[in-house]
Design a protein around this nucleic acid. Structure first.
Length: 287
DNA sequence: CTATCTGTTCTGAC
DNA sequence: TGTCAGAACAGATA
C-alpha cells in the first residue's frame, strides 16, 4: 500500500480535507490544508505521511480500514480504473466513493483524491510532531514495537532470547506480538507457521535453532508474497472488475478449514483458537 | 431469529 | 513482570 501510494501522493499538496467521523479522524483541517506531503512510509502497521512542516499524519487501518486513492481525469464521477491503495478487500473497491464507510477524504492539487474508509471504526488518523518520531526507536509513539521482519535485525538469536523471556507463550502468539516482531498479523502468522511446518500451539521456548531459521525464512516469504499479490494487486483487483484474484487466493491454510492440505500430505486443515484468534493448521505436517 | 466470526490493539485485573 | 479476558465497532455468514 505504501509503495503504491508513495508514487501518487509524495510531493502533492493537500488542498482540502473532509472529516466524516470525529472518533476515527483525530486531525483537523488546519493540520493538513495547503500543506505538502514530503514522504510516505511505514513502521509496523502504522502508515505515516511526513508533511513539509514538523508534523506527520499517522494512519492505522486496524481490521477493516482502507486507503483508496483515485484520479478521475475526465471519466466522470464513476472512475474505477485509476485507483491505488490497500487494506480491507471488500466491494468498496468496485463501487463509487465516498460510501457510508468513508471517514475522511483528502483532496490533492492534481485533482486526485484519497479516501480513508473503515467499516468497524477501529482505525484512526492522528497528527504528531515529527521531531518526536525521528530518533532511535521512532519516539514514544512507537516505543514498544519490535524488529521489522524484512530487515536483518530479525535473527534466530534475537528470537531465542525473547522466547526465554516469554516462556509461557505459544509460538503463534509470540510471532504476532508487535513488540517482538512488527507487522505479522493473524493471516501471515498462520501462513508462515504452515510453511515452516511448525505447529502453532508449540511453546516458543521449545523452538530449536534450525526451526527459528526456517520460520524467519517463511515469515519473509509469506510477507513478500502478500506484497506481491495484495500490495500491488489492488490495481488489478479494480482493473479486472471482478471481485476475486487477490492475495487471499494464494493463502495455503488461512480460512481453509476442512480442505485438503496443499502439501498433499493427506492431512486436512483444522481450525482452533489460540490467544483468542482463529488459527488454521495441518496437524499432519506441522510438528 | 441466534450465535459466531473477523487481515487489531489497548486496558485493567490478577 | 507476564497473561488473559474484555472492550472498542459493524457487518457477514452459518
Amino acid at each position: 500500500m505504501v509503495r503504491g501510494l508513495r508514487k501518487k501522493i509524495e510531493n502533492r499538496e493537500i488542498l482540502s480535507f473532509d472529516d466524516r467521523d470525529k472518533k476515527v479522524v483525530q486531525i483537523t483541517e488546519k493540520d493538513v490544508n495547503n500543506i505538502r506531503i514530503e514522504r510516505v512510509w511505514r513502521r509496523a502497521k502504522n502508515i505515516i505521511f511526513d508533511l513539509e512542516n514538523d508534523t506527520a499524519l499517522i494512519f492505522h487501518l486496524k481490521m477493516t480500514g482502507q486507503l483508496i486513492w483515485e484520479k478521475c481525469e475526465g471519466e466522470g464521477d464513476f472512475c474505477l480504473r485509476n485507483r491505488r491503495g490497500g487494506g480491507h478487500p471488500d466491494s468498496a473497491w468496485l463501487e463509487k466513493l465516498p460510501n457510508k464507510h468513508t471517514r475522511a477524504i483528502f483532496y490533492f492539487d492534481d485533482e486526485s483524491v484519497l479516501y480513508f474508509n473503515d467499516i468497524r471504526r477501529f482505525g484512526w488518523i492522528k497528527v504528531i510532531q515529527r521531531s518526536k518520531i525521528k530518533d532511535q526507536n521512532y519516539g514514544p509513539l512507537f516505543n514498544n514495537i519490535g524488529v521489522e521482519p524484512l530487515e536483518g535485525e530479525l535473527t534466530p538469536e534475537y528470537l531465542a532470547e525473547m522466547a526465554e523471556r516469554f516462556s509461557n507463550r505459544k509460538i503463534k502468539q509470540f510471532i504476532m506480538d508487535q513488540s517482538i516482531i512488527a507487522g505479522v498479523g493473524n493471516i501471515y502468522a498462520d501462513e508462515s507457521l504452515y510453511v515452516a511446518k511448525i505447529a502453532p500451539m508449540r511453546l516458543a521456548k521449545d523452538i530449536k535453532n534450525s526451526e527459528w531459521l526456517k520460520l524467519i525464512k517463511s515469515i519473509r516469504e509469506v510477507l513478500e508474497q502478500g506484497i506481491k499479490y495484495g500490495g500491488s494487486s489492488s490495481e488489478n483487483f479494480v482493473d479486472a472488475f471482478g471481485k476475486q484474484g487477490e492475495a487471499h487466493e494464494h493463502l495455503l491454510v488461512y480460512r481453509r478449514t476442512g480442505k485438503k492440505c496443499p502439501n498433499n500430505c493427506g492431512g486436512v486443515i483444522e481450525r482452533t483458537v489460540i490467544g483468542g484468534r482463529g488459527t488454521h493448521w495441518c496437524p499432519k505436517c506441522q510438528k
